Amino acid sequence: MQTSTLLIERKRHTATIWLNRPERHNALDEHVIRELTHSLQQLAGETAIRVIVLAGCGTSFCAGADLDWMRRAATFTATQNREDAQALATLLKTIYRSPKPVIARIHGAAMAGGMGLVAACDIAVATEQAVFGLSEVRLGLIPATIAPYVSEAIGLRAMRRYTLSAERISADKAWQLGLVHELVPADALDACIEKLAQQLALGAPQAIANSKSLLRQTAENSTADDSWLAETASLIAQTRTGAEAQEGLAAFFDKRRPAWQEETR
């Protein structure tokens, strides 16, 4: 499947969305944002797809915002600018809240908005030569829509440094900061992602979606909040009586694969 800015490849239980503007280093503009958001929403509803991979064609993952788009936005009305900015915020939220695990496949540059895409994904795998950065202040901008996701990934203290300095972040430093989960040689990138996708597909689909929701709520609450701790007890109590839990436990005791794993064989 191909759109004007994307390639979408399906292989067994995994869908890979390729940003397909290599001549622009896969920079984001209103067309990429609209098509990527729509594709993610569509894949979220496909039961045969268990894992989504976000990747970039050419030499870069994503170089951030397309500067021609930024130049055009400077001439928008206040209402147009808010709507335009909201579209990017919606894209990042769509990635972050996808019921399916989303893996970032990173090579080359992942700058500014590209770094935001990485942070919004559940798992990030990068080549040893990848480079990251929050370059906005050097253009008179701020990393507004990506800040919640990057801050969660690397922590607010590190976010302060790299937002204000706009210095480049090496792949090794990104791994140390927690932005990237795995660093691999370029020729091992796809094999690493395929292995991760296989592991993710072993999980029950609804349990994965509910676990992602649980983790978001955990980030918003505290162990000092008794009502939240009581809610977690309610959540596991409800889950135990669900169809997936019943099938998973029965499969364990019967020494067989649960139904959702049979579907991906």
Rank of each mutant, 00 (worst) to 15 (best):
residue 61 F to D: 00
residue 177 L to P: 00
residue 8 I to W: 10
residue 121 C to G: 03
residue 194 E to N: 09
residue 39 S to D: 06
residue 97 R to Y: 00
residue 80 Q to C: 08
residue 237 A to C: 07
residue 74 A to W: 05
residue 90 T to F: 02
residue 137 V to S: 04
residue 169 I to E: 01
residue 88 L to I: 12
residue 31 H to C: 11
residue 15 A to W: 08
residue 165 S to R: 11
residue 97 R to T: 01
residue 239 T to S: 12
residue 207 A to T: 11
residue 81 N to D: 15
residue 54 L to I: 15
residue 101 P to N: 06
residue 176 Q to T: 15
residue 29 D to R: 03
residue 36 L to T: 05
residue 19 L to Q: 11
residue 149 Y to N: 10
residue 253 F to V: 14
residue 83 E to S: 06
residue 8 I to R: 04
residue 53 V to G: 06
residue 142 I to T: 13
residue 6 L to T: 04
residue 159 M to E: 02
residue 1 M to L: 09
residue 123 I to G: 04
residue 99 P to Q: 00
residue 3 T to P: 04
residue 7 L to F: 04
residue 39 S to L: 03
residue 215 L to T: 09
residue 43 L to P: 04
residue 39 S to N: 05
residue 69 W to Y: 13
residue 220 E to K: 11
residue 265 R to C: 07
residue 127 T to R: 05
residue 107 H to L: 11
residue 193 I to V: 06
residue 220 E to C: 15
residue 144 A to G: 07
residue 10 R to M: 00
residue 256 R to P: 11
residue 27 A to P: 01
residue 248 G to C: 05
residue 224 A to L: 12
residue 164 L to F: 12
residue 96 Y to D: 09
residue 260 W to E: 02
residue 106 I to A: 12
residue 241 T to E: 10
residue 59 T to P: 05
residue 196 L to H: 13
residue 14 T to I: 01
residue 28 L to K: 05
residue 232 T to K: 06
residue 87 A to Q: 05
residue 7 L to Y: 03
residue 238 Q to W: 07
residue 136 E to H: 15
residue 242 G to D: 15
residue 96 Y to S: 14
residue 239 T to L: 12
residue 16 T to E: 02
residue 32 V to G: 10
residue 153 A to G: 10
residue 2 Q to E: 15
residue 229 L to S: 03
residue 232 T to G: 02
residue 177 L to Q: 04
residue 5 T to S: 03
residue 96 Y to G: 05
residue 194 E to W: 03
residue 68 D to G: 10
residue 174 A to T: 14
residue 121 C to E: 01
residue 204 A to Y: 10
residue 265 R to G: 13
residue 187 D to M: 04
residue 167 E to Y: 03
residue 210 N to D: 15
residue 129 Q to L: 03
residue 13 H to Y: 15
residue 175 W to F: 14
residue 241 T to W: 13
residue 34 R to C: 07
residue 254 D to C: 02
residue 168 R to N: 14
residue 233 A to T: 06
residue 14 T to A: 00
residue 108 G to C: 02
residue 52 I to W: 00
residue 10 R to T: 00
residue 187 D to P: 01
residue 31 H to E: 12
residue 141 L to N: 10
residue 211 S to N: 08
residue 161 R to N: 08
residue 77 T to G: 15
residue 253 F to K: 08
residue 131 V to D: 08
